[in-house]
Nucleic acid binder design. Structure first.
Lengths: 202, 202, 202, 202
DNA sequence: GATGAATGAGACTTCATTCAT
DNA sequence: CATGAATGAAGTCTCATTCAT
């Protein structure tokens, strides 16, 4: 975890956690509405429920907020995936179920995913690297599911590509909602994508 | 075309065109490097080769520049596609060739695509709509290719989804370069994606 | 003494003294390094070994710290002078010895003197007056030495001027160290200044 | 000259000169009253007769203003000295006349000298060095006068010390005005200091 | 008495935009 | 048409001070 690397002048670790959660929640709400750049630190503070001075007791720069947000989004995804994608036993149908769960999750987290897509570039190198690593982990999880269920029937490259495709298909439901969600219901979208995936792994 | 809707205080239409091309070229260079928000109008002016005052003779607001850029990127894609994706005759191999051409194009225009992904949300409603329409057109072109080559073997929904997948796979080569281009050469990436597509349309 | 005029919410006078000494010690260290304005009250508190809240139990405003520091510096000078400049008997050689002692002292207290020169103006009228009075006392002590040793050979004005010159020559060794200490050793500096003084009183 | 090293986004060099003179004049007035730290950039702008935005077209940071001010003060001193201290012929009386001129000048520029004493430390290394070099030049000028008039009767060290003493005596009339100007008229101060100097060089 | 989290006024600086030349 | 100096709203961040625990 990298979050601890963000310095705070407050000592109470528990309090830091609570306050940062407030910050993240407030910031995500604002970033969804207007993006990182058009959101002011004052707005973040007030949306978080405290003063600008207090905000800066828990972060160092505005960019820290963005990092906190990006990191938290990945954290949420990770948690949810861990609890929802449980492969009772390795099999193609279970793999499909897992992917379906992932798609449901991405549907719920559309706005958060859009934030990642649009704002990660505003992080500075170090933080961006960290966030991209989390993203890489996501792909890794999907790769695992595939490998487990297909028992090595596909080459490593194919698995990697397939995993990336799945991940991005989950994202595109959200970041291309203006086109996808005009033409598909979530169920139809998932059904069709899953059919194609089934073709691909045969 | 929507570009004309951007007002200019200059009368000479030819000059407007020339100047705006300078602006677009300069702005794209800067947006690639630092993004829209971190680029100043002064920088755009100077990169374009004239003064800040002159810049404002050809645009009304900074956002106009973004619109000009987004529109121009789509314009470029459209042009290139028109000249490169020519289906001599409708057939699956020719469809594959066309998709391959599209992937090559997306490889060349990576940075521009990333700009679209990251900055479109900064456009205001009206302009955003216009840009998203261009994007829709892109999908339409791919759909056409598919329909022509597969002669209606797939349902409209399937075609639409496939087209969107292809379009996004072209994009992801660029906007996920930090993971894709570490694991694949462009050729390998295209080969594998095309194989999957072939499976999907069988 | 004026220090008592600085209000404290703490009752225990002994404790006040101890804490204030901590404050002064910490603050002097910081003021030497970065000056009064660039030092924060938090830094003063932590350098003093306690919390910001505690700091404010013993002072009212940041300026109080500056006053405490200025006053304490003069206090130190006074003490040291009292114990080091003892004129066994009034004579020109003893006067020279006394001045030499004063120069040694000023060498040791260079940084403190620089603080006085640079920050006194940040005190508000009342406090500044008090500090300048201490400075006046310093001159008085030197005048006394001169008068005692020269037995009224010089006019009051001459004595006053000489005393001020001596005082400032002690200071300039420190506040113009970037030029004086590049060209003179302390010994050479004192020797030459003393020679000139001898000429002047002949 | 170092002033050119301060960047300005304005191109017209003549205008830069004019505006900076306004800035310097306004800033000196304010620094005299409240010191550098307690003066805000907005006050400087408005005292200079333009907006905060315009101020920042001619400087980069607030510290630049301080540097401009310090440099300008030395510049003024240098100019005035050049035109007032003209040694018709080298002789002790002419040397005394020159020193007297210097004292008059320091009387007129008291407040400026006080600014130098109190704020130079707020400059960052590079600028501070430059300013101290100007100060060194001042000493050099006085040394020259002495050497010319005394034709090498004194050792280099003695000359240097004497010059520094004279320079500082000029300053102390201003920065210790609260004690000196209570006891001396300017004339008396100069007379007495000059007498002592005469003794010292005999 | 000690602590330290909370506050918010206010400081510095940037930058999109205008307009006189 | 082109220029670039001027503007000032607005943004980020700091820090002296307070007060509940």
């Amino acid at each position: 975890m990298k979050e601890e690397k963000i310095l705070s002048s407050v000592k109470d670790q528990q309090l830091i956690k609570v306050r940062r959660e407030q910050i993240i929640k407030g910031a995500i709400k604002l970033f969804k509405e207007k993006g990182f750049h058009k959101t002011t630190t004052r707005e973040i503070a007030s949306e978080s429920g405290f003063s600008i001075g207090t905000l800066y007791e828990y972060i160092r720069t505005k960019e820290d907020v963005l990092f906190l947000v990006c990191d938290s989004i990945h954290e949420q995804v990770r948690e949810r995936i861990a609890q929802e994608i449980d492969l009772e036993s390795p099999s193609v149908p279970n793999m499909m179920k897992a992917i379906r769960s992932y798609f449901y999750l991405m549907d719920e987290m559309q706005d958060e995913i859009v934030i990642l897509y649009q704002e990660v570039k505003s992080l500075k190198k170090e933080s961006r690297k960290h966030v991209l690593n989390s993203e890489r982990d996501m792909v890794g999880i999907i790769e695992n599911v595939i490998n487990t269920c297909l028992e090595g029937k596909l080459s490593a490259q194919k698995v990697s590509l397939l995993a990336n495709n799945i991940v991005v298909q989950g994202h595109m439901w959200g970041f291309r909602r203006w086109i996808m969600q005009k033409q598909f219901t979530l169920e139809a979208y998932m059904d069709e994508q899953l059919k194609m995936i089934e073709h691909a792994i045969k």
